[in-house]
Amino acid sequence: MTERFGYSVIQWSAAWDPSLADLLHFAPELVLEKRVAIVACDSGPYRPSTDQLLAGWTLAGAVAISSEIAQAEDLPTPGFDEWYVFDTVPESAPTRCHVNQYDFSALDEVGAIQGFWDQIICTRPLHVLGAGTPNMFVVTRDTHLVSRIKEFVLPSSAD
């Protein structure tokens, strides 16, 4: 685990096409009663259904912002997902996807990673959840959830 800008970063390698579904099954509190800004869903923008829009989902450009999440299963988890999780509707929505870059790491020190952290600093989410190839990551300001997420990640594969 690493800390940056007041966030804890936990990253691990998963399958070739990892999904956030297993993580949410283990720790649904990551999203319950929160708003999720979906920057990437299966590598591209997520288009909320008519029912979701009627239930309070909104669009900020290409980013779908959920209504308050009542069940983690209500979120799409096909893989190549990047979510910014907020306690309330964000004042500023994230705009750029990073998980589509092969071997993207929330722990890198150079290159495209600067845009990732600039986006986090600008939007101030509670968590950022990502599943790309081959890395999955959780970036969080919630210190109570850090040990819970570590339980999910095999100690030998966690960075």
Results as ranks from 00 to 15, higher is better:
Met1Phe: 06
Met1His: 05
Thr2Gly: 04
Thr2Ile: 04
Glu3Ser: 14
Gly6Arg: 05
Gly6Asn: 05
Tyr7Ala: 08
Ser8Arg: 12
Ser8Gly: 07
Val9Thr: 09
Ile10Asn: 00
Trp12Ala: 13
Ser13Gly: 08
Trp16Asn: 11
Pro18Asp: 05
Leu20Gln: 05
Asp22Leu: 06
Asp22Ala: 07
His25Gly: 11
His25Ile: 13
Phe26Glu: 05
Ala27Gly: 05
Pro28Met: 00
Glu29His: 10
Glu29Trp: 08
Val31Ala: 00
Leu32Gly: 14
Glu33Val: 04
Arg35Val: 00
Val36Cys: 08
Ile38Thr: 02
Ile38Pro: 00
Val39Arg: 02
Ala40Thr: 09
Cys41Gly: 06
Asp42Trp: 00
Ser43Asn: 04
Gly44Ile: 04
Pro45Thr: 10
Pro45Val: 09
Pro45Ser: 09
Tyr46Ile: 03
Arg47Cys: 06
Ser49Pro: 00
Ser49Glu: 00
Asp51Glu: 14
Leu53Cys: 06
Leu53Phe: 00
Leu53Asp: 02
Leu54Trp: 10
Ala55Asn: 01
Trp57Glu: 03
Thr58His: 13
Leu59Ser: 13
Ala60Gln: 10
Ala62Val: 04
Val63Asp: 06
Ala64Ile: 06
Ala64Tyr: 15
Ser66Asp: 01
Ser66Lys: 02
Glu68His: 13
Glu68Trp: 14
Glu68Thr: 14
Ile69Pro: 01
Ile69Val: 12
Ala72Val: 01
Asp74Cys: 14
Asp74Pro: 10
Pro76Glu: 07
Pro76Gly: 08
Gly79Asp: 05
Phe80Arg: 15
Asp81Pro: 03
Asp81Arg: 05
Trp83Thr: 02
Trp83Val: 07
Asp87Lys: 01
Asp87Ala: 03
Thr88Gly: 14
Thr88Lys: 15
Val89Thr: 13
Pro90Phe: 12
Ser92Asp: 09
Ala93Met: 07
Pro94Cys: 08
Thr95Leu: 08
His98Leu: 14
His98Pro: 13
His98Ile: 10
His98Asn: 15
Val99Asn: 03
Asn100Ser: 15
Gln101Phe: 08
Gln101Met: 10
Tyr102Met: 14
Ala106Met: 05
Leu107Gly: 05
Glu109Ala: 04
Gly111Ala: 06
Gly111Gln: 00
Ala112Pro: 15
Ala112Glu: 14
Ile113Cys: 15
Gln114Met: 09
Gln114Thr: 09
Trp117Pro: 11
Trp117Gly: 03
Asp118Ile: 12
Asp118Tyr: 12
Ile121Leu: 10
Cys122Ile: 11
Thr123Lys: 12
Pro125Met: 01
Leu126Pro: 12
His127Lys: 12
Val128Lys: 03
Leu129Asn: 11
Gly132Cys: 02
Gly132Leu: 00
Thr133Ser: 14
Pro134Ser: 03
Asn135Tyr: 15
Val138Gly: 06
Val139Tyr: 03
Val139Ile: 05
Val139Lys: 07
Val139Met: 04
Arg141Ala: 13
Thr143Ala: 04
His144Val: 13
His144Met: 08
Val146Pro: 04
Ser147Lys: 09
Arg148Asn: 11
Ile149Met: 10
Lys150Ile: 03
Phe152Ile: 10
Val153Trp: 01
Leu154Asp: 13
Leu154Lys: 15
Pro155Cys: 09
Ser156Phe: 04
Ser157Leu: 11
